[in-house]
Design a protein around this nucleic acid. Sequence first.
DNA 1: CTGAAAGCGCTTACAG
DNA 2: CTGAAAGCGCTTACAG
Lengths: 341, 341
Amino acid sequence: MFPKRLGENMITLKDIAKEAGLSVAQVSRALNDHDDVSKETKQKVEDIANSLGYVKNISAHRLVMGVSNRIDFVVQGFTDEDNMLEHNEFYAMINGVNKYANEKRYEVIIYILQPTEKSYVQFFRERGIRNAILYGFEYDDPKFQELLSITCNMVCIDIPINGENKGSVIVNNTHYCTQAVEAIINSGKQNIALLTGSPHAVVSIEREAGYRIALTKKKLPIKENYIVDADFRQSVAYEKTLYLLQQNPEIDAFFCISDYMAIGCMEAILSIGKVIPDDIAVMGFDDIPISRYVTPKLSTVKQYSFNKGFEAAKLLIQIENKEQVNPTVILNCEMQLRDSI
Amino acid sequence: MFPKRLGENMITLKDIAKEAGLSVAQVSRALNDHDDVSKETKQKVEDIANSLGYVKNISAHRLVMGVSNRIDFVVQGFTDEDNMLEHNEFYAMINGVNKYANEKRYEVIIYILQPTEKSYVQFFRERGIRNAILYGFEYDDPKFQELLSITCNMVCIDIPINGENKGSVIVNNTHYCTQAVEAIINSGKQNIALLTGSPHAVVSIEREAGYRIALTKKKLPIKENYIVDADFRQSVAYEKTLYLLQQNPEIDAFFCISDYMAIGCMEAILSIGKVIPDDIAVMGFDDIPISRYVTPKLSTVKQYSFNKGFEAAKLLIQIENKEQVNPTVILNCEMQLRDSI
DNA sequence: CTGAAAGCGCTTACAG
DNA sequence: CTGAAAGCGCTTACAG
């Protein structure tokens, strides 16, 4: 009557019960270490379970317990070989999520969503996703916006979202970029160009705002032609830097909102025989491992990805449990001053 | 009578059935797009499901279908900030696992095991793990050995294992290291030292064997004092390189079985004023992103981590389905000759 | 300390 | 095209 079974010879409580001469109920209680089971029974049941190679059917367990105990970590796929940033962030973040999940006995399911997926909502429905951490999405993607309209518990990393059962873990990008640009100015530079990422990324907007605030605070003019998109890519940053310096030879510093762009920027500067930081200073953002290996060592702003994951998991479970919490967690960064400014 | 429910107001088939004036059975069929349901019914049911925000209870679905459709990706935790190799490998591997899992409609659960975990077997039992991909373990860890004795389907990455329902995805380390060392010899070097990792790692043993084979093939003597452990660490490699060169000033090349050690080795060589590769050549293994950013650019051997993940997932599901397969998948690498030899 | 029973939410063979 | 029924494997309130 029923379809394929879970392997031919999966061991169930029934098998143990038969072997032990007990009821299924008592075996369940023994295995779950209830107080009202005799020591001898517990031992006997455990021995039989081991000898039979029993593994609990987690689906049945969850069905009856009425819990999912799942955190779905949904990543908008980044397949760009060039861009290893997320790869480094990714492990640290997963590690943070797992740390918290493990404490609470949740399990973490990973989904890497292809941008070609027709509907994220349908993706969620089909997979029974009820507790999601979102990472790597573009805030103006209509499919992402549609997703935010469903009632599923969600915590989004790096993008502020709101609504019922929604939360965000973000970094105060604007604040730390203001700090970074002020540090450049304090080092004696006046004509600071900005290499930003893409208008589809919230971080671009926030970090650019920090740049503008710093200049304003320091009473320096904001020149719109100093502000250029480089799509978060090293190669694009290289070209744009060359172009900017050709058009505006007075530029004496670059603030790049990602380290990869900063590295492309540095390569361009060195390629035309200028000295970093004496002629032109460079500052990045992210603190990718490579930034300590380039010459000169790149000054940048470090993010704590492990914490992002950990806090996202914590917030998500709080939301699931209907706890009263601040739905926006803001994490700290730290400036890393090295040799490039 | 029953404990906490899955949220107060989880929508079930029953709710939809009531709203639609249909039986639960028919709603199930409609939602699963069976042939024998009228178009109108399907549409009506789908509309109601959407308006109610229905999400399938995946545990109930799996229980009745008798499937787990889960791949448990179990990583022995690496928390060493210094060692970013695995972090890069990790994302690529997860991506590969997900690619295959997604095609087969499996989901991927991530577990990051702490070495402090008392029993891996118990960890597996408690979580109902039946289909595991193992990564990052040490083959001589007794808890790992114990784990291999249980009947759970397992595929291990980078460590050959065997037994019923077991498989491995490995790289022919010995072969590619032979190639690498031959390339060093062909570049004109004769006194080649080896920086190996740790005797607890299978890759160390395999890669060292490749070194020995290359020397033997080329009729060069094997000097045991040229072979030194550096624990896969950049800083240790730095020290050991200094020591080796002091003891054996005739050394004109280093083969390092990881890029991180190669980078430490290069730093040591440069620190004493020697020129790479003219005075001393260096070759690594892994092709981490940083290897293209150091000066001179590091020659190394590239591994394809995405493929490791993809093949591991494929093999695991084949094993689960009792297909006749070769339990050992051997993947190719590729030599990357750059400027350091 | 233990067993019989009910029920979690879903799917499908069976019988119309 | 549809409904009633059985059953997946587990857990616990209830009644001894």
